[in-house]
Design a protein around this nucleic acid. Structure first.
Length: 573
DNA sequence: GCCGTTTTCGGCCCGACTGTTTTCAGTCG
């Protein structure tokens, strides 16, 4: 069974955890963690790169040693070094190290002194009050560990960006009401517009940090307080999300925002550059020999290390620093550039509203065009339309367009990709459509070879202009398709078939790292909402977020073009 | 273990908070 990138990355993370417990060279530990991060953020499959003879040594953070280990994993499915270490330091310790409050040192003590190897061992020992007797531990920590174990049993939860927004908005509003508070900004992965966030990081400018922290923990929705100090505090809300607050003076706003936005890997890399120049960057500013030389704005911070401003969405240490140095940063696409939505449903299938209402809402948004893309017959759960129903709908659209100048409704369909890669509408109807969107809705479990063949064949049909939600994943619910994405993207680039970035909060498909890679191959994109109601048209924001995280410029996105340009830019038979 | 517009050896980001200490290690972001 070939290993996926996340599986390979996990092996390196575990190796790092165990070495950490064993007190290995911390920089070596960091190198493994860094490699894990790079592998997770790589669109191309390590397995296929190895099989094609690609030189892994060229990837950032991956040298000769780790490249060799990746080869071993791909060839044998095992990492012998990890197996070797696991004989003396149990693999399950890496589960413990991930519990909040426990790190390598404490896990080591637990293992050495009480032979605790697993979460179950740990729970038993805590209940018998064995933990509090250990050196460096105590009663409070014992309680904290039991709490952490309860949370661990419930599993880690990451929140859709849309959910996080709904939770953050009233809290930001609340914080703003306190006297003396200046700016209130949600930073962290939320500001980087990552598809999901694990917690909320809120930055506040104010002279009196203590007062803000006190006010913050008194917020209605706060369930428990994890920590509270003069400049920061951390709480759990009743919704279950963790919120970290940080308070700095206004003069430090830029430096603090920069630090608090992350990502950690990006910050570490830029701080490294600063060190080489004899500078120190922290959340209060940029310092040379103890003297503060910048920090009011993020731009100042970047300028201090001679870099142009880097947009938050790019700050993942995935090449943005090098691009910034060379003046090669992309000018990211914006929501204002979007001229139309290319994926929407009506109550003819599983949408909730009429064609007229959808059109009205699109017009209100100022769009030039909206594609009506109801399902085809094979998708029975969504009441897919028979070919004759679709033909009837085309006439309705023609009539609508004749009556309503300004907005152009595009005749389309979300054509189902059949198991054999065929399309669920005859060419005679496909030919009549302004736009053909193709998507896969069942048999997600086909093996890699068959699934890849299925999508390649679908794209071989010259009518297939856009591949919608290409990975068919649902965040937190359904894994992405097992496909050779590199081959599919190369095929799409060659055939001129565009990839969709679907803005539904649970889809956001294609994901950022694949978008970035696809762009490098010359693949074109469209941004759509897959709206099932007029309100869903608002999901375009999330599609834009994902596009920006994938380095897309307006020129990479076909629906930034006016109608005629857009239609001409699509693939044609 | 990785890396190089000062280096192929000698570096590798930085500060806040907690709990257990009696001056600080561990953890976290």
């Amino acid at each position: 069974m070939p290993k996926s990138n996340p599986e390979i990355a996990e092996l390196f993370d575990r190796l790092a955890d165990l070495l950490d417990v064993e007190d290995a060279n911390p920089f070596r530990v960091r190198a493994y963690r860094n490699a894990a991060r790079v592998i997770r953020g790589e669109s191309r499959s390590m397995t296929e790169l190895v099989e094609s003879g690609f030189d892994l040594d060229g990837l950032p953070g991956i040298g000769e040693g780790i490249a060799e280990k990746i080869h071993e994993i791909v060839d044998t499915g095992r990492l012998s070094q990890l197996d070797k270490i696991a004989k003396r330091t149990p693999l399950t310790l890496s589960d413990l190290i991930r519990l909040p409050g426990l790190g390598p040192k404490r896990v080591k003590t637990l293992y050495r002194q009480l032979n605790i190897r697993s979460a179950d061992d740990l729970r038993r020992a805590a209940r018998k009050h064995k933990i509090r007797e250990l050196p460096g531990f105590g009663e409070t920590l014992e309680h904290k560990i039991l709490d952490a174990l309860d949370r661990y049993a419930r599993g880690e939860h990451r929140w859709y960006l849309a959910e996080a927004e709904a939770i953050a908005a009233p809290l930001v509003n609340y914080l703003q009401k306190l006297d003396g508070v200046g700016k209130v900004t949600v930073a962290g992965s939320y500001r980087r517009r990552k598809e999901t966030v694990g917690d909320l990081d809120i930055l506040v400018t104010c002279r009196k940090g203590v007062r803000v922290a006190e006010y913050f923990v008194a917020y209605d929705e706060v369930e428990s307080v994890d920590s509270q100090g003069d400049t920061r505090a951390s709480v759990q809300l009743e919704s279950g999300i963790q919120v970290d607050l940080r308070v700095v003076p206004a003069a430090s706003y830029g430096a603090a925002l920069y630090y608090f936005t992350g990502s950690k890997a990006h910050n570490v890399a830029v701080r490294g550059i600063a060190v080489k120049r004899g500078l120190k960057i922290n959340e209060y500013g940029v310092f040379r020999d103890g003297e503060r030389i910048a920090g009011r704005s993020e731009k100042e911070v970047f300028a201090s290390v001679e870099l142009p401003y880097i947009e938050p969405e790019l700050r993942e240490d995935r090449g943005e620093i090098e691009a910034a140095r060379k003046g090669g940063l992309p000018e990211l696409v914006t929501i204002e550039a979007i001229r139309g939505d290319l994926h929407s449903h009506t109550n003819a299938t599983d949408g909730r509203e009429s064609l007229e209402s959808m059109a009205q809402a699109a017009r209100k948004r100022g769009y030039d065009y909206l594609a009506i893309t109801d399902h085809t017959r094979q998708v029975q759960v969504a009441h897919g339309q028979q070919p004759e129903d679709i033909e009837a709908q085309l006439d309705v659209i023609d009539e609508y367009n004749a009556r309503n100048p300004g907005l152009r409704l595009l005749k389309s369909a979300e054509v189902d990709i059949l198991e054999d890669g065929g399309l669920d509408l005859p060419d005679s109807i496909l030919r009549r459509l302004d736009l053909v969107l193709c998507a896969l809705h069942y048999r997600f479990e086909l093996d890699r070879k068959a699934q890849t063949r299925r999508l390649l064949k679908a794209m071989d049909n010259p009518h297939c202009q856009i591949l919608a939600h290409p990975l068919a994943r649902l965040i937190n619910e359904r894994e992405p398709l097992d496909i050779d994405l590199q081959r599919i993207l190369e095929h799409a680039a060659a055939a001129g078939c565009a990839m969709e970035i679907n803005g539904q909060p649970a889809r956001l498909d294609l994901p950022d790292v694949h978008v970035q890679y696809a762009r490098s191959l010359g693949v074109k994109f469209v941004l759509s909402t897959d709206a099932h109601s007029t309100g869903h048209l608002d999901y375009m924001r999330y599609a834009v977020d994902q596009a920006r995280r994938g380095w897309l410029q307006a020129g990479d996105v076909l629906n930034t073009r006016p109608l005629q340009d857009f239609l001409a830019a699509l693939r044609h038979v």
